[in-house]
Simulated assay, not measured.
Amino acid sequence: MAEAARTAVGYGIDIGGTKIELVACDAKTLDVRHRRRIATPQGDYHGFLAALEQLVADADAELAQTDAAVGIALPGVRDRRSGLQLSANVPALTGRAVAADLQARLRRPLRFGNDLQCFALSEAHGGAAEGYPSMFGAILGTGAGGGYCLDGRLVAGFNGLAGEWGHWSVPAHLLQRHGLPVIECACGLRGCVERYVSGSGLVALYRHFGGDASEAGAVFAQADAGDARARQVLAIHLDLLGHSLAALVLAVDPHVIVLGGGLSQHAPLYDVLPAAVSAHLFAGVQVPPIVPPRFGDAGGARGAALLALS
């Protein structure tokens, strides 16, 4: 019985800029048996570590566990040589050996990914990509990024960066076509895809052309109300997004693309996006199905639990 208890569940922790969520998933059915969210400690690294330790202890107590494996979706990028977080939307984590420090505190099997990769893994198992030989989860939120799964397994790559399509560059001819500047990116590169096609990128495009909006939904609303500027910006955004997803098709040729993030909730996008992707592919290349997610914003923690159970 003790061995069965140890392997009954896997914990998944999704660390976001405003919240941290832990879910415990049944090892056989993937049903969620426990869930808890807390606010993310922003400026206190040791408080952050203590908060995760307490989340795991609370789950252990409720589920009568002692050493359940934990998958953790860390924000940003982790340098595999030094173990340090290179960038994160939780400032207190940047430059810290988060993985090593959590291992020392939790003293159990840990698996690490990022929130984008965990989203993809979740959608590959019981989600919108269930049954497909390969899938790409493309996040269109505050930023743009994703994850790639092959036969249900996450492909992380040499640096753990597989899926970071948001930091590919928009070609100069597209920027010139639409009269757009080369925008600096926080990653240190210039002209990154995410600065143009993410939700925040859409807002930046609208403002560049003289519009006034604080979030992407307002741009869609203005277009629906007949605003010519908003419609022009959405056409530009669609062209840039179509090109970036066409590049994904040429690079990894997924059998399905699952969109995530705030823009994935805009239903009309699914009707027009396939043609926008096809416009940037050569003759004979088929655009794979582009579909909305099944688990929405719950995918990160669920995917992290799948990491723990893999």
Rank of each mutant, 00 (worst) to 15 (best):
residue 223 A to K: 12
residue 49 L to Y: 09
residue 127 G to H: 07
residue 43 G to I: 06
residue 260 G to C: 15
residue 64 A to K: 02
residue 213 A to F: 09
residue 281 L to G: 13
residue 192 C to Y: 10
residue 74 L to D: 06
residue 288 P to M: 11
residue 51 A to C: 05
residue 131 G to Y: 03
residue 177 R to A: 07
residue 112 F to M: 15
residue 142 T to W: 09
residue 30 L to I: 10
residue 147 G to Q: 04
residue 63 L to T: 03
residue 120 A to R: 04
residue 152 G to A: 01
residue 226 G to S: 01
residue 142 T to H: 08
residue 27 A to T: 14
residue 278 S to Q: 10
residue 239 D to P: 03
residue 214 S to Y: 12
residue 49 L to V: 00
residue 162 A to W: 06
residue 152 G to L: 08
residue 265 Q to P: 07
residue 8 A to P: 12
residue 76 G to P: 02
residue 35 R to L: 12
residue 133 P to F: 07
residue 253 D to W: 11
residue 10 G to M: 14
residue 46 H to N: 06
residue 290 I to N: 13
residue 111 R to L: 14
residue 157 G to C: 11
residue 110 L to M: 12
residue 146 G to T: 06
residue 69 A to E: 05
residue 77 V to W: 11
residue 197 V to E: 00
residue 178 H to V: 07
residue 72 I to Y: 00
residue 17 G to P: 11
residue 172 A to K: 07
residue 123 E to H: 05
residue 298 A to F: 09
residue 90 V to I: 08
residue 72 I to C: 02
residue 113 G to W: 14
residue 83 G to M: 08
residue 33 R to S: 03
residue 83 G to A: 01
residue 12 G to F: 11
residue 7 T to Y: 15
residue 210 G to V: 13
residue 17 G to R: 04
residue 26 D to H: 14
residue 134 S to F: 14
residue 277 V to K: 14
residue 42 Q to L: 02
residue 246 A to M: 05
residue 78 R to L: 05
residue 26 D to K: 12
residue 309 L to P: 07
residue 271 D to R: 02
residue 122 S to A: 08
residue 25 C to L: 13
residue 248 L to M: 08
residue 39 A to P: 05
residue 169 S to K: 10
residue 154 L to T: 08
residue 228 A to C: 00
residue 186 A to Q: 13
residue 144 A to S: 06
residue 228 A to L: 00
residue 230 A to S: 01
residue 233 V to Q: 00
residue 10 G to F: 12
residue 231 R to Q: 06
residue 17 G to K: 08
residue 288 P to H: 03
residue 98 V to T: 05
residue 68 A to G: 10
residue 25 C to E: 15
residue 141 G to D: 03
residue 40 T to E: 03
residue 23 V to G: 05
residue 158 F to Y: 11
residue 23 V to W: 03
residue 243 H to Y: 15
residue 41 P to W: 02
residue 79 D to L: 00
residue 13 I to F: 13
residue 69 A to H: 01
residue 161 L to A: 06
residue 155 V to A: 05
residue 233 V to P: 07
residue 109 P to A: 08
residue 83 G to P: 00
residue 131 G to R: 05
residue 244 S to F: 12
residue 52 L to D: 00
residue 242 G to D: 04
residue 133 P to S: 12
residue 199 G to V: 00
residue 269 L to I: 09
residue 239 D to N: 00
residue 40 T to I: 04
residue 122 S to C: 04
residue 90 V to K: 04
residue 115 D to E: 12
residue 255 H to F: 03
residue 64 A to F: 10
residue 15 I to M: 02
